[in-house]
Amino acid sequence: MTNLTTHIPHQLITNGDAAITIEYQAVIDEKLTEHIIQTTHYLTKQLKNYATEFIPGYQTLTVVFSPLKISIERFEQVLKELLEKPIQQQPIHGRLIQIPACYDHELAPDLLPLANYCQLSIKEVIHLHTQTTYLVHMLGFLPGFLYLGGLTDKLHCPRKSTPATRIPAGAIGIGGQQTGIYPVASPGGWNIIGQTPVNLFNPLNTEPFIAAPLDKIQFVPISKKEFIALKKKQS
């Protein structure tokens, strides 16, 4: 574990009358994400009487509070003082989570166009996509949507100009410089290059999601046959 007592320069910006966003002046990397998650744990304890949400971003942490309990001026002051102190460390052990991924053309409508755009063969795209371990920076956008870092620039590909109206749950996509998995069915503009049979969101479980920030994700290629078998096992 890295030493996180280092101070990362930041500024506080009001986000409406019931939230403050901490913007960090640092590049997006694992160290910053670890700092943000550590800060979240620390502030959650310190601010439990006022704060209702802590929303981590790549380079931000947004703290939502109840304005009936504390004024925004006072809350900003409290936050500022807390952030000046060294943060007590709690070890965070990221896990390596392997996610089976089927890149069969029937489940990957945009794999060929993406390969063409990147001037790669389909085989090369799959190889590049599965050989990296991706860092989970945060969850957001949709329930359980993982913001992953580490996609090789060889696979960067702009989002589609016309978003698909319905992308199935489990679809694996590339949008711009990011790769990710749709945890629930949704409209979306990412290039769909595969699908996982794994259920990524179980709202009835105490831990409804497959991964948390600082976990690492690796895609493991599977055949269509294995996909169908795993899908059957889940339901």
């Binding site: 966003t21 913007e23 949400e53 931000t60 947004t62 939502v64």
Partner: peptide, 10 residues
């Protein structure tokens, strides 16, 4: 912009 928490009323 840096993406950050999107609160109600934004």
């Amino acid at each position: 912009i840096l993406s950050s928490g999107l609160t109600q009323g934004s």
